[in-house]
């Protein structure tokens, strides 16, 4: 049995839902990181019965590996359908690894205003941090070789699973 088979995305999602319910302040906002985090935020938003819609944030314009990787196609994903100034934000992503994506996403968030607080919730923490970032909620943990990329997938009916490339 490989490491990924132990990760049941749907079971972890139910734990994440419980965790986020505890983290979200009464006037709090959900913002998901494109793309896996955005799917999670969208479903959490629905399951928590929140008004309006969840925000989506892209890390593309603040990435620190721009000079090596260039600009990927389809970076146009930041959509914040609310003012973030002075609000409590729960940032959602699928996998937490080096922390660099989170750093870039927080920078992107600050281009739109100054939130009162930002809390991080992820489905899986795979260790390997290169920045002082930690999640307030991370139901799953896994160790993978550095070259492997773990990400969330969503099927036609909205069911989550993990894939490794």
């Amino acid at each position: 049995m490989s490491a990924i088979d132990k990760l049941d995305a749907e079971a972890l999602y139910r734990e994440l839902l419980r965790g986020v319910r505890g983290l979200l302040k009464p006037d709090g906002l959900l913002v998901g990181i494109w793309s896996g985090g955005a799917w999670l935020a969208e479903r959490l938003h629905q399951d928590l019965g929140l008004a309006g819609e969840a925000g989506v944030i892209s890390s593309a314009l603040h990435r620190d590996d721009f000079s090596q990787r260039g600009l990927s196609a389809g970076a146009d994903h930041t959509k914040l359908p609310f003012e973030i100034q002075g609000r409590h934000i729960v940032l959602v992503d699928d996998v937490l690894y080096t922390g660099r994506t989170i750093r870039a996403a927080v920078n992107e968030l600050y281009d739109f205003g100054r939130p009162a607080s930002v809390t991080l919730a992820v489905l899986v923490d795979r260790g390997g941090r290169e920045l002082p970032i930690c999640a307030a909620c991370a139901p799953g943990t896994i160790e993978l070789p550095a070259g492997q990329r773990l990400s969330l997938a969503r099927d036609d009916v909205g069911k989550f699973s993990f894939e490794i490339r």
Partner: peptide, 12 residues
């Protein structure tokens, strides 16, 4: 969309 933000600048 960057040109319509509060901070009209990205660090690329």
């Amino acid at each position: 969309s960057v040109n319509e933000r509060d901070v009209k600048k990205v660090p690329l």
